[in-house]
Every structure is written in structure tokens, then in C-alpha cells.
């Protein structure tokens, strides 16, 4: 039995899942295939509906 979690994909969904788990004190391995995390959201200029900056 292991108490760690593997998250695959470092877009906004994988980032949020990792942070939530880590905040619960659970150790997370976050695996992302690209050189940096961020996913599509990092490529967006701003996001609806608030027009906040994406990163």
C-alpha cells in the first residue's frame, strides 16, 4: 500500500489536483511531458470571464 499519488499532466487541472493533494499532506508526483508545466492555459493571453492574465 502506498500513500502517494501520481498526477499525469501539468495543465491547470493537473496543477490544481497536485496542490489540493499536497495541501492535504499527501505526497504528489506530477509528471508533465513538455519541458514546463502550464498546459494550454499558459498559451492564453487572458481568460474569460474576468479577463485576468492567464499566468
Amino acid at each position: 500500500m502506498s500513500k502517494d499519488v501520481l498526477v499525469i499532466g501539468g495543465g491547470i487541472a493537473g496543477i490544481q489536483a497536485s496542490l489540493d493533494l499536497a495541501e492535504m499532506g499527501i505526497h504528489v508526483y506530477l509528471v508533465e511531458s513538455l519541458p514546463s508545466i502550464g498546459g494550454k492555459m499558459a498559451q492564453l493571453d487572458k481568460t474569460f470571464p474576468t479577463n485576468d492574465c492567464a499566468i
Partner: peptide
Amino acid sequence: MLDVGRHPDIDLMAYSEVE
């Protein structure tokens, strides 16, 4: 994003693949 890089409970493995 920064928080992920800094969090002691997150092992960030970028440029990696599950085999």
C-alpha cells in the same frame, strides 16, 4: 504554477513520460 515548483510535497517531473 510557482507554488507547484516550491511545494515540499510535490515532486515535479517535467519533460517526463509514464511508461
